[in-house]
Design a protein around this nucleic acid. Sequence first.
DNA 1: CGGTCTCTTGACGGAGTTCAAAGCTAGTGG
DNA 2: CCACTAGCTTTGAACTCCGTCAAGAGACCG
Lengths: 193, 193
Amino acid sequence: MEELIKRNFRHAMDHDLSAAEYEEFTSHMFTKSYDKKSVLFQPGEQARYVYFILSGSAYSYYVNEEGDKYAVQFAVEGHWISDQYSFFTERPSLLYVETIESTEVLVLNREHHSALCENPLFGKYFRILVQNSFVALQYRLVKTNGEDAEHRYLEFSRLYPHFVHRIPQYLIASFLGIKPQSLSRIRRRLVQG
Amino acid sequence: MEELIKRNFRHAMDHDLSAAEYEEFTSHMFTKSYDKKSVLFQPGEQARYVYFILSGSAYSYYVNEEGDKYAVQFAVEGHWISDQYSFFTERPSLLYVETIESTEVLVLNREHHSALCENPLFGKYFRILVQNSFVALQYRLVKTNGEDAEHRYLEFSRLYPHFVHRIPQYLIASFLGIKPQSLSRIRRRLVQG
DNA sequence: CGGTCTCTTGACGGAGTTCAAAGCTAGTGG
DNA sequence: CCACTAGCTTTGAACTCCGTCAAGAGACCG
């Protein structure tokens, strides 16, 4: 777990956490374990926590009025996940967050998040996380809007190769905005011709 | 212009700018005028400025490899516009920003933006702006992904009623991810049936 | 008044959905 | 350790929405 967090800081900010910094950073978080397919929170509730995944995987998704499910974000070891909208505005979440596999997370609540942000190092770290979320979302909008499903799938495979064989196809389909049947057909086309 | 900015602060943060604060906020910005259809910056360039619109309107958009154009954001008086990704990361922009009408803007560059952020009041203001951008983008993804074009258009009309009769239809179509012909047919259906 | 830009309308085609059913696979309990 | 089941993936056929191509009608500006 220590190595995972330090690597995350190195990757996001080119900064090696000292022992004291690591201590401060993790002092108010606690670990929690979930079975597969556990719901961490749902629409209506506030997202009171952000979760750092230590092992396993989770995803956030939305269900529209017709009952169709659409994945918003996938997260594996070393990723953060939550509904940032709800977490920051304290308004009810629009999203579910649910584990895919059996998963262990570090939990951070809003008060401790704010407290950590008083330290410029951690403030900057969390600002970069928000910025990265924004960038990923805009990139997704820009690169997938107006492309057909095959392009979207190829782009997804290129960006997240480690997800392709780890996340169930019906979830990838819901991320791409298509039905599992369509993704199955696309994959067949790509293999055959 | 003064009223526009003060209203913006009131709306974003419930804060009434004092004369001194207003002075500090605007001291390093300058105004600039553009004809309609002027390009403020394009892909490849860095977005070195953020623009606050005093009068007129502008939008950001993306052009894919096939040459199709997709609007990302519209902005009228009292809105900010830029490519935040490029502005914050200093990497080349993915987007165009272009005026729709003849438009007057306040211009703020990165150095002065950083300087303003040293003041906690303005730091918070700009953090809220980024947060709002993120929220709007996620909301758009969540509310339009998987809906048909008619739903997307109705949602757009509901969220931005003032845009519907001010932004040309072919730009609204490009925002919705459809062709102008399709939007025309959708509008006819809505009026008739 | 002529030219360009925008919006409308029609006919056809293609990508993705829906409905339905069958094959796989992994996890569970006997 | 096997058998069964529930959930995931694949496949087929009919249908729907939107895109493409093409052409015409308005609107705006010089």
